[in-house]
Design a protein around this nucleic acid. Sequence first.
RNA 1: GUCCGAGUGGCGGAAUGGCAGACGCGCUAGCUUGAGGUGCUAGUGCCCGCGUAGGGCAUGGGGGUUCAAGUCCCCCCUCGGACACCA
Length: 945
Amino acid sequence: MTEAAGTADVPPFRYTAALAGDIELRWQDHWDTHGTFHAPNPVGELADPDHPRAGAPKLHVQDMFPYPSGAGLHVGHPLGYIGTDCYTRYKRMAGYNVLHPMGFDAFGLPAEQYAVQTGTHPRVSTEANIERYREQLRRLGLAYDDRRSFATIDPDYYRWTQWIFLRIYNAWYDTEQGKARRIDELIAEFDSGVRPTPDGRDWGSLNPVERRKIVDGHRLAYVSEAPVNWCPGLGTVLANEEVTAEGRSERGNFPVFQRNLKQWMMRITAYADRLVDDLEKLDWPEPVKLMQRNWIGRSTGAHIDFPTATRPIQVFTTRPDTIFGATYMVLAPEHELVEALVPTTWPEGTQEVWTAGHASPRAAVDAYRKLAAGRTDAERQAEEKEKTGVFIGAYATNPATGQEIPIFIADYVLAGYGTGAIMAVPAQDERDWEFAEVFDLPIVRTVQPPENFDGKAYIGDGPAINSAAPERGLDLNGLRVDEAKARIIEWLEANGHGSGAVTYRLRDWLFSRQRYWGEPFPIVYDETGMPVALPESMLPVELPEVDDFSPRTFDPDDADTDPETPLSRAKDWVEVELDLGDGPKRYIRDTNTMPNWAGSCWYELRYLDPHNNERFVDPVNERYWLGPQFEGDCGGVDLYVGGVEHAVLHLLYARFWHKVLYDLGYISSFEPFRKLFNQGYIQAYAYRDARGVLVEAEEVVERDGRYFHGATEVFREYGKMGKSLKNVVTPDEMCELYGADTFRVYEMSMGPLDVSRPWETRAVIGSYRFLQRLWRTVIDEQTGAVRVVDTPADEPTRRLLHKTIDGVRSDLDNLHFNTAIAKLIELVNHLTRLSVTPREVAEPLALMLSPFAPHVAEELWQRLGHNGSLAYADFPVADPALLVAESVVYPVQVAGKVRARIEIAADAPEEEVRAAALAAVVDQLGGKEPRKVIVVSGRMVSVVP
RNA sequence: GUCCGAGUGGCGGAAUGGCAGACGCGCUAGCUUGAGGUGCUAGUGCCCGCGUAGGGCAUGGGGGUUCAAGUCCCCCCUCGGACACCA
């Protein structure tokens, strides 16, 4: 089938896949040899004052870098890369100094698992995969500055990942200044007595270990004994985000247990407010911003103390204004105060329904706790939200009303959110209302619902009612919700009942994994068992060689096991003698590795100065490429393109690291990615026979809307492209069949970049024909001669050219590649109808084509008589005079339907247009005067009969 | 259940409130070719109509605003994604 190009009747100089292949390889070599896409830095090794774009306005465009899997690329992977390539090629021609780098996110589990299975070192398989990715990407003609390419597994790179970890470790968050500061400054404050110790003891009286404990407790990276998600089946702990709603591991679907284990944590919660607030500065898709906001889950309200017989119960509420409607309280079943509060007998007058039939509060509480603990989240869901709970036999005092209100435990209150306790206000909360109905509890409205309101709980705004306690100096009646909130918080604070407060859903980031294939921590433990940071001179801490790459895994159901990491088995590496300033001593290395996210948390910075051995990035280079562009600007990458699956985790973690580095004064931008664009996915059809067995998608044929694989009927599904689904199409096949340029044009013309769509190999031919047709307008297929003439273009051709230039420019500016290509096709289709092609059209056409099909564009540009690459040629600019038409065809509507058309001079006065339009539809009006005539200048005329 | 996104020809998709269906695939007819097709030309939303005359209907469904609605507003349906009682 690929032999077609060789058959006799194909003209010798036609643009075929074979010719495309020649052209493409030749130009790729040319770009490499000439360093065409090198972008100059202002300073350092990559500075180049003679570069055509030195000193020009900068543009940093970055793709989310790939994890190089063993399967190689399929046609879906490069969609975003081709998009950014088109955009950057255009912007380079439009005068920008464009930085467009590519690297590899190369630490990760697949290589480790492959190593476990085959014994191949993860570095060996990963480097082979990277090499293959590089070849595949190079074949597509992507214009990267290859001097800036790196992989996160390069010791030169992860040396700086470790270095940044140490900067975070050696930092604390100063809530007064609202930023991270160096840990030395904290120690100095303790030393000088400016800052009291957390428990009030005198700093000078503390021994070194006590002091270190206090300091360690402030660090942004810290070791915690806090509960973690321990997954024995995987032999590692997991971040909350890696655990499913059913309490199982996202990968492997093993049970996950809450255990207290010593783990590295990052204090991302210190940045919660800034991570929310700075979203305002970002040009990101709204849904992604919303996901981040929801993930952080900031809610503002108040902490309120409800006195009890023992200690008061603290609740968090977003609606302190409704406190007069708080008729009962609910604690999470696990709440620590429950033990202290439960009495031996039911109090006088306890309702039957509150006790669940138990003889004593103790029995009721124990039974309910057992029930709640034994149910998975999935089971709780299945219950259709029917509220359950039990009275614990104790009362609390509502500080506003002074009334005694019963205390319940119920699993709709979560131990891990807020304080694990709520004041229940059934009139203004749906869940509380449902609970109150089940347990026959009083409902007091404290916000007046609108007259037509017929629901139960009313959560909207309105004047407060039933909300006064004059004897306590409190009256909220008549106030709107916001005013009432402010008033009650004032009162709570003045009377010692509580204070305004903010809570977050976001938790600190679990940062250590019991894995081999990741960055080792630059940390050792001394004889006290406390962590000690290694000095910069000892970086990088390289991974030791080991025989077994997997953590020890356990019976998936045995929660009572402890992690045993691959690094811990490298005894010679773990136990070291080091001189850390106080003479040689023995230390134990940390045997965890960093999570996969670490390498992608700062790579936008390393691209700027990839070979710098002194710093992770030179500040001058950082300021040039990422710095703020105006007062208050956050700075950052000008365009960051990748899939929406990274909406929360990667993007949140990278923002966090970037902000820490900003606070510590290393960089001038306080956001990593100024503008984010989520490209869609290329999806594919898969086919199964009646037994459910997948068949090769390529071999399926369609007949009358049904699908057949040989003689058997198969059934179509739509979804991902993947080897296991037998529907993979690779870019290599497409390059072989059509050439890289055709492939690029096809991917860009499939639809808007941000929308997912199915791959259809048979449609690629359309893009191939387009390039063939375009080639033919410039090159004679029979002789190979350039068939372009120097005579001027005729007026309609010239006008079409300028309209195309104008449209293509604005489409490119907005990443609307599909419509830009459609406009180029229209121009080419017009040229094919001419007997010759004027140079004044052929040259701008080649330039406009070059972002999409750079190789064939370079070839045509050269054959049109230019030397070297067009990469820095000026992108065509439309002549505004030629964009204005001389005459306009107005459709004339009568009663909303087009009944006639009139052609009239573009500058005809409105009266003239109106008269001509009325004359054209005089038949339609039946001699009557129209009621109204609307003339939209340059657009249309609408007549209302 | 909640939140977000999307529904336009046989298919992928165009369309600052202003002629719905640009451009491409496919399909039909013709040209070219020994044959084939990844070449070329023309046609192609649906319905009525002999039609290159003319007309009607069409952007998931139903209302509304407007001279004019795929586009704006309200209600509903379907599909895709995210989240899991967040006080």
